[in-house]
């Protein structure tokens, strides 16, 4: 079989084209975002979290009722209807408003507790890891000792002393809650110190700075972010648990925990909406944060990165 002669002419090299296909260099966070968008678990969690946050803000304004307004006449224990979308409780209060008002309280507790943990953890762990040596040793010994304490028992104890309330719950939760974060931050700082040292030895000054900013710091931020995501549902869960023990926020303020606790007394009757709505949204919140945390962890896992 003859092959036409022109086929044997030199072809243009497609080098430039081959080079151009190379992925454009993205910043760390752009990269994370792109991969997170493909992670349906994490994205699902994020969307639900945003929706819940929106409802927590807007929900209480969507009806004419307030969370404390009672109707001791015919308005008690009504099932869901066009009037009261989630029904009413035994004091005739509108469950829809209370559910979303409860969302405000529960989410506030979760987010504020997580942020305070973050601040204390970053300060403590950061100082410990950065100073190193003797300081580090002493600071970490203290953490070790505190680590042995049973978290929720201490929280209960504190609440018995401080008395129940939104602020005291947050204080009690953060008194022991920062340990995890402190340990993690210290570890990350140590790692960063090592890398910084190695990098400085290997590359020129300008490059080191860029690398720190573009890769090292975001990389060490990853695990902290993941832990932060998991802290929120833990705090929300703890608050609900405390409500069950009668140590939650005090009436008429409602959280999902106190609403569930109230509803448990009538679980054997047919007023299913009393338990259903607060439980549904509490569980959904925990689920969403856990899913988002899982997704984030998968996305940030160095092993998954290519």
């Amino acid at each position: 079989m003859a092959i036409p002669a022109e086929k044997f002419q030199r072809a243009e090299r497609k080098l430039t084209e081959a080079e151009a296909i190379r992925r454009p260099s993205l910043t760390f966070w752009q990269d994370v975002w792109i991969r997170l968008r493909k992670n349906w678990l994490g994205m699902g969690g994020l969307v639900v979290i945003l929706l819940l946050a929106f409802m927590a803000i807007a929900g209480p304004w969507m009806t004419e009722y307030t969370y404390y307004q009672q109707d001791l006449g015919d308005g008690r224990n009504l099932g869901p209807s066009s009037e009261h979308w989630f029904g009413t409780d035994d004091l005739g209060r509108d469950m829809f408003v209370r559910t979303w008002y409860g969302a405000r309280v529960s989410l506030t507790i979760g987010v504020v507790a997580a942020l305070i943990d973050l601040v204390i953890g970053v300060l403590y762990g950061g100082i410990s890891g950065y100073k190193g040596g003797r300081t580090d040793e002493i600071m970490m010994r203290i953490v070790d000792v505190l680590w042995g304490l049973p978290y929720l028992l201490v929280v209960i104890l504190l609440l018995v002393v401080l008395g129940p309330g939104l602020d005291t719950i947050i204080i009690a939760l953060t008194v022991t809650g920062w340990l995890n974060m402190a340990r993690l931050v210290r570890g990350q700082v140590l790692q960063l110190k090592n890398q910084e040292y190695v990098m400085a030895a290997r590359t020129l000054g300008a490059d080191t700075k860029r690398l720190m900013k573009k890769h090292l710091i975001p990389n060490t931020m990853g695990p902290i972010l993941v832990l932060l995501t998991y802290t929120v549902p833990n705090a929300i869960f703890a608050e609900a648990f405390l409500s069950f023990l009668g140590l939650g926020v005090q009436a008429p303020v409602a959280s999902w925990g106190t609403m569930i606790d109230d509803a448990l007394t009538v679980i054997l009757t047919d007023e299913w909406w009393r338990l259903f709505f607060p439980t549904l949204f509490l569980s959904l919140t925990l689920l969403a944060f856990n899913a988002f945390g899982d997704g984030l962890r998968d996305v940030l896992d160095p092993k998954m990165r290519k």
Binding site: F8, Q9, A11, R13, L15, I21
Partner: peptide, 25 residues
């Protein structure tokens, strides 16, 4: 240059994109 994309490998010689002697064939 870089190696061929194995998801959609070239019909002809795999080295053609990088070969200094590559011909149309």
């Amino acid at each position: 240059g870089s190696p061929p994309d194995l998801l959609d490998p070239p019909r002809g010689c795999p080295f053609a994109d990088r070969c200094p002697h590559a011909m149309y064939i």
